[in-house]
Design a protein around this nucleic acid. Structure first.
Length: 120
DNA sequence: AACATGACCCCAT
DNA sequence: TATGGGGCCATGT
């Protein structure tokens, strides 16, 4: 079961381009655990493997790393090189805990689609 | 209502 | 780079 906030998070997960990643905090500033829960309980088809921790480590181990490597996401050791692979999220730069009505930045519209470096 | 548990994060050692 | 403490939203006892 997902709440409205979680649904919004899932939608943003879907917006992560192939070859890039986003962190839980990018998806839900101020309540990153909520992003984790959303992915854990949803039955929707989303590219969950493109979501990583803020230090580049992953929650689902080798399985996740394999999927990421398959997309060409740069990985050093056992963690993603965020400086190259991080997708410039629409919420990037927004405030942390309680950024206005809604409690988080969810509700912001379209992504910038600004190209970072192509995943090597 | 208190406490515990998560695909977590930030800050200060 | 690694740990510990405090904070976060939602659920389940």
């Amino acid at each position: 079961v997902t709440t409205r906030r979680e649904d919004a998070i899932l939608e943003r997960v879907r917006s992560i381009p192939r070859g890039f990643v986003a962190t839980y905090a990018d998806l839900s500033p101020g309540a990153p655990r909520l992003a984790g829960r959303a992915l854990a309980v949803t039955d929707q088809a989303v590219p969950w493997h493109r979501v990583v921790r803020s230090d580049g480590s992953v929650a689902k181990g080798r399985r996740q790393l394999r999927l990421l490597r398959a997309e060409g996401v740069p990985i050093r050791g056992d963690r993603v090189d965020l400086r190259l692979a991080r997708y410039a999220s629409p919420l990037a730069g927004e405030a942390g805990p309680r950024s206005g009505p809604g409690g988080d930045g969810i509700g912001v519209s379209a992504p910038p689609a600004r190209a970072l470096r192509p995943a090597r």
